[in-house]
Design a protein around this nucleic acid. Sequence first.
DNA 1: TATACATGCAACCAATTGGTTTCTCAAAAT
DNA 2: ATTTTGAGAAACCAATTGGTTGCATGTATA
Lengths: 106, 106
Amino acid sequence: MRRDIFQAIADPTRRTILTLIAVQAMTPNALAAYFDTTRQAVSKHLKILAECELVRQEQQGREIYYQLEIGRMKEIDNWLEQFRKLWENRFGQLDELLLTLKNKQQ
Amino acid sequence: MRRDIFQAIADPTRRTILTLIAVQAMTPNALAAYFDTTRQAVSKHLKILAECELVRQEQQGREIYYQLEIGRMKEIDNWLEQFRKLWENRFGQLDELLLTLKNKQQ
DNA sequence: TATACATGCAACCAATTGGTTTCTCAAAAT
DNA sequence: ATTTTGAGAAACCAATTGGTTGCATGTATA
């Protein structure tokens, strides 16, 4: 039980769940229809996502709607931030190269 | 052996390795000094990162320098893209709320 | 009220993971 | 030429993971 957002998105099923509920809240049953596993397996994935606060539950009668908790997703974005400079730099260099080539053609 | 970039960054040691070599290329030995594990364990992490093409190796005598392959990191950014709209929206709504509160004070 | 449905939990299982120790190999250094 | 050093591969191990089946519980419906 690591309860780590990076570990949470490591599983492809969980990533798909996040994508699905990003569009609209869904019940475990409805989600399970998208996968080749049992409802209980999906339930376990949802539990992990809930522990990481990546999803929010909303009971509605006997159904539970799972909704994306978008705020947490920003943590991944924050981690990426340290690398963003590097790849912007790289693409910046590419831009420069293309510009040089263009100038030579003129 | 999943060779999946999301699975690669799931491990905290591997994330730290990526952060370290983002600054400058490093050898397995130098990296191992940062962790409470054996050099061989670090070597295994590097192998996984290499399989995902997140690092590039450069032999120099008997040492091997590992360097960050920044391009692959953009895949994570691309996956985040689908959620970015949502959280920008959310913070947009927050901005609006703050603006309303400010106006009320006046 | 009895039955069907939606969900989560517990117990179990095979595969994977992250770590270790031991070994081999190639390149420096003595 | 011999020894030391840097690195990866192999064999092994305990813990974790993702899945299953069976059960318990609460809510809707007949």
